[in-house]
């Protein structure tokens, strides 16, 4: 078990509907795996199971060699981030970030110090006192990242985190996330339905469709696989290039 995260033969059904079927997946430490999947592919369920919010019917999840399948979400040190920033509406930006540290009953001065550093990292120092409704979509998402990363989770699960943002904010956030992931040695699963985003964000790429998952050894293998849709995309842009 040298792998950081390993998922073996995971199954999940809701009633008669099979949502996940024999999912196998591995992730190295300090890498980001992009998972490409459209809505209804089962990607959200998969992330929730990894986080411990949902339970699988069958299969095992190993984190750093330990089987965590039966652990409570609180014990897993895995944070799941939704498409919405889900900032706590009764707390300001600062307190939202401090939330996890306060749960650990960390002392006040250390919290202040850590949160200020995080605010700086996510370029939100100016907005520390603002309440969630006063923040823009991108700013909310930054706070949401800060809130997750400050407790230094072992693994970060991101479910279409930029799905609700406009194109320019989106590319800025991709940039920011990549820098942060690198600086903080993050391991993450990044789910998106956007082909380009999957390629940009991931060190590795997988594709989930109708509850089945294919993980590619290298990005090249992904580009060459007809199932991935990359070749189709390239052909499309080429055809435009030729016609003009």
């Amino acid at each position: 078990m040298s792998q950081f995260l390993t998922i073996q033969h995971l199954y999940k059904t809701f009633g008669k509907e099979t949502v996940l079927q024999d999912i196998n997946l591995t992730l190295d430490k300090n890498t980001v795996l992009s998972l490409l999947g459209s809505s209804g592919s089962g990607k959200t369920t998969l992330l929730k199971i990894i986080a411990g919010i949902e339970t699988a019917d069958k299969g095992n999840i190993f984190l750093e060699g330990n089987n965590i399948s039966d652990q409570k979400p609180q014990e897993r040190h895995i944070v799941y981030l939704y498409q919405e920033a889900l900032l706590f509406p009764h707390l300001n930006a600062f307190e939202n970030i401090a939330f996890g540290l306060r749960l650990q009953k960390m002392n006040e001065s250390l919290i202040t110090e850590k949160v200020h550093l995080m605010l700086k990292n996510i370029e939100m120092t100016k907005h520390a006192k603002k309440m969630p409704p006063q923040l823009s979509g991108g700013q909310k998402q930054r706070i949401s990242f800060g809130r997750a990363m400050i407790i230094e989770p072992k693994l970060l699960l991101l479910d279409e985190p930029f799905g609700a943002l406009d194109a320019s904010t989106r590319s800025k956030m991709q940039e920011l996330f990549k820098t942060l992931a690198h600086n903080m040695n993050l391991s993450a699963l990044f789910v998106t339905h956007d082909l380009k985003e999957a390629i940009v964000m991931g060190d590795q790429i997988g594709k989930i469709q109708k509850g089945q998952l294919v993980q590619y050894e290298t990005k090249n293998e992904f580009f060459n696989d007809a199932f991935s849709g990359v070749q189709k995309e390239i052909d499309f842009w080429k055809s435009i290039g030729q016609n003009t």
Binding site: K48, I53, P73, Q74, H77, Y82, L86, R147
Partner: peptide, 14 residues
């Protein structure tokens, strides 16, 4: 939304 916030709190260690 409320359910998601509750779950988020769990994953943050609450």
């Amino acid at each position: 939304q409320l359910k998601s916030m509750e779950e988020l709190s769990y994953t943050l260690g609450g």
